[in-house]
Design a protein around this nucleic acid. Sequence first.
DNA 1: ATTAAAATATGATAATTGTCATGTTTTAAT
DNA 2: ATTAAAACATGACAATTATCATATTTTAAT
Lengths: 225, 225
Amino acid sequence: MSKCEQCIIRQFNSLKALTKDELLRISACKTSRIIKKGEVIFEEGESLNGLFCIKDGVCKLTKLSANGKDQIIKLVEKGQILGQRSLISDERTNLRATALNDMELCFIPKAEIIDDLKKNNNFTMDMLKEMADDLREADDFIVNMAQKSVRQRLAEALLNINENFGTNPDGTLSVLLSREDFASIVGTATESAIRVLSQFKKEGLISALGKHIKIEDLEGLKRVE
Amino acid sequence: MSKCEQCIIRQFNSLKALTKDELLRISACKTSRIIKKGEVIFEEGESLNGLFCIKDGVCKLTKLSANGKDQIIKLVEKGQILGQRSLISDERTNLRATALNDMELCFIPKAEIIDDLKKNNNFTMDMLKEMADDLREADDFIVNMAQKSVRQRLAEALLNINENFGTNPDGTLSVLLSREDFASIVGTATESAIRVLSQFKKEGLISALGKHIKIEDLEGLKRVE
DNA sequence: ATTAAAATATGATAATTGTCATGTTTTAAT
DNA sequence: ATTAAAACATGACAATTATCATATTTTAAT
């Protein structure tokens, strides 16, 4: 199995703060997992017993609401870590993680990470910083949800996906989402999401061939009211 | 000026993880501030240069949305800390803090706290835990905003305030909020918040004399659809 | 105590969004 | 290649929520 020390992925998350020795220990106890598109990585309410480091692929973090609909809280991609919150709070997960495409994950057992958190303050501080960033993002998300129309929220969702996950060579968004997923990001009915996307298409803001969506007028999308 | 070491407030937040020596140092450099009801403690986008520890009173954390309306993200009370997120990210604040009643605050300069974070891992871990909890709360908030009706959100807001901030001897909620504040918590128009509260009153779920609101039927409020 | 300003209340109406029905297209399994 | 299932699309209508207008009550300043 490959060594964490040589893994480029590590540079993009808190694990970069670990020392060589710590990385060697983690390499020795980590396990690797392949997850197929659509598969659930962990369920809401599950005990994780460790962290996942995403080596490849993208997944969605969702929470089931009382009315039975899933809400997408966040999309997480290659280089990022899953399960920090439950690890730190020592609680079951509050979200479900589902693969949006085929994924490769490394699993690091809880005991090792906790040990590092206690001994390596740089690591703890780095994780604290990441969590502080997540919290700011969550604040922004709350305001968007509370104060903007479905049309505005969907425009923002497209812009965010474009900004954070980039595009394929043909200009289409690299993350493929169903209309239901879009609805689940902006918190609306699937039909409403479909209607707004169709409208964006008519207005020339985007083009769409099935799930392959391309932003045609970035500035126009930003101006959506 | 009173000593942090003897301050009971400290028991309720991360500062409890500090050592006696650290507390003495903080006592020596902290300043105290009295804030009147309605006054702004800090603005969105301000540089804080430290932490506030709330000795008494309650404040709201709001974020201005693009449409010009304020969204209340969180209510924070006696015993809690303000400014952790911007301290840790070393960024300007993303929220404005406004006193909801007369408050007493202690201000601890950034340099002291950063020093403690670097040296005392228990303190860092404790702060990390608090932030992880905040993040879970934010996730729940997002789902509520995205998936529930104004009526449901307002019912939940009342239940949360009742649970987290308690009641006066006469049974009224101890935190006094204007109808506009309620609207700003659930993300709706002030008129809508007023209408729903009037409806709750008619249905006997609450009674209200101006801002003094009393939950009359807790179970009923929980059942609101 | 008086008075202006702010907060609360309610009606009327418009705009947004959800739900249900139904048809078409795409996808995936055999 | 065929076919069943899932995803996408759109119309019709209902429900929810926002906006505007206006009145009343409460609050705070003089």
